Amino acid sequence: MIVTRGLTKRYGRTVAVDAVDLEVREGDRYGFLGPNGSGKTTLVRMLLGLVYATSGEIEVLGQPVPKRLADVLPDVGALVEGPAAYPHLSGRRNLALLDAAGRHRGRRTRRRRIEEALERVGLAGVDRRPVKAYSLGMRQRLGLAGALLDRPRLLVLDEPTNGLDPQGIKEIRELLLELNRDGTTVFLSSHLLAEIEQLCTRVGIVDHGRLVLDDDVATLRAATGRVLLRTPDPAAAAAVLDGHLEHRDGDHLVVRYADAAELNTRLVSAGVRVSDLRAEHRTLEQVVLGVTGHGSDRFGGTR
């Protein structure tokens, strides 16, 4: 769905995107993750023909971009750097103008398409209110509605949950999961670790313009080989686990043990009561900080 080879963008002496080789497969929910200023938005703009690359190649839906961009765009929905809209017009009217400007859209089905898009993003009840009265979150929803007018094969989103409250973020996440189940490939650029971790199946991590990691989320969140244990008998557990215990804090223990089920059996057989026991997995935050080497203040878990 998206392929780049050696994609590079320079602004004078500044390299915003540095020789990125990217592949987004059909059916992916691909998270493009990086701190602010890492080159994410510049790359997204190049995918959509909004910025020309200095060097390298881009294919979207099997077509070269920007050469065949006009053939590609009807099957791509996009929301980049916040939604654009005429503030004095209603949300519905803005969508009608956007729909009229698109290719392969029939006038007879326009009203139905607009109503479906507004309903899907939760704006059906305020669709006739002028956009200048919208909150930032409502504007973001309107932009997403515009991206969904044509039921795109590929959805390219740059920080789509900007300005949304936790409930709104959850609703957009569920919508994107539904769209993906129905066959839409989702490419989501964000700096929000928690959202990428909950939504995406694959992730690419970019730092200073370079793609420093590209892998399945399940692989990245592999077990660490440690078990997190909570027990009302911490002293007895520590005695049983001599040589395996790495850390103890009250009734919480961190144990170096590959098989959590086997560990549980061992403790119970020794008469140690177990309140909670689970294998430890790496978080996406740990993965990101490991490959970028930056402090966590460059990333956010919430807005």
Rank of each mutant, 00 (worst) to 15 (best):
L142E: 05
S189K: 13
L69M: 03
R298K: 07
L175N: 05
V217T: 07
G143P: 00
R13Y: 05
A261P: 15
Y257R: 02
I205A: 03
L123P: 00
L192P: 01
A270V: 05
V254K: 12
L89T: 02
V274W: 00
T184F: 12
R10V: 08
R173N: 04
P130V: 09
V291I: 13
T14Y: 10
T292D: 03
V126R: 13
V287D: 05
T283E: 06
E195V: 10
R105V: 11
V274I: 02
A235V: 15
E195W: 05
G290L: 11
M46F: 05
V3S: 10
L149F: 00
L98I: 15
S269W: 07
R105F: 09
S189A: 15
P232Q: 07
D158F: 01
A85W: 00
R13V: 11
R151Q: 13
R110P: 12
M1G: 03
K40N: 08
R210S: 15
S38K: 05
R256A: 14
R129E: 08
G295I: 10
K40Q: 08
L177K: 11
G122A: 13
I2Y: 02
P35L: 00
L33Q: 03
P74A: 02
T4V: 07
D276M: 06
H104A: 11
N36L: 01
R141P: 00
G62C: 07
A218G: 09
L89R: 04
Y134Q: 04
E285K: 03
L97A: 14
L98C: 14
G77V: 01
E115K: 07
A218Y: 06
L253F: 10
I58K: 00
R210Q: 14
V291G: 14
E171K: 12
V72Q: 00
T109Q: 15
V72A: 03
L136W: 01
D249S: 15
E262S: 11
R120P: 09
A238F: 04
T185N: 10
P166G: 14
L73K: 09
L192R: 00
V206M: 03
L50D: 06
G137C: 01
L22C: 08
A53M: 06
T14G: 08
D276Q: 09
V72H: 01
N180H: 05
V156Q: 07
T292N: 08
L213W: 04
V268W: 06
V186H: 06
V44P: 01
V121M: 12
R173V: 02
I172D: 04
R298G: 02
V131A: 07
G102K: 13
Y257Q: 11
G271I: 05
D21L: 13
G102Y: 14
G91D: 03
G122Y: 12
V240A: 13
L245R: 13
G225Y: 00
R139C: 03
G137E: 04
A84W: 00
E246R: 15
M46Q: 05
A96T: 14
L179A: 09
R181Y: 00
K40D: 10
I172P: 02
L69V: 04
V186G: 04
A147T: 02
A16P: 06
G102M: 13
G27A: 13
G31W: 01
T265D: 14
G295C: 12
R112C: 11
H281N: 12
L95Q: 02
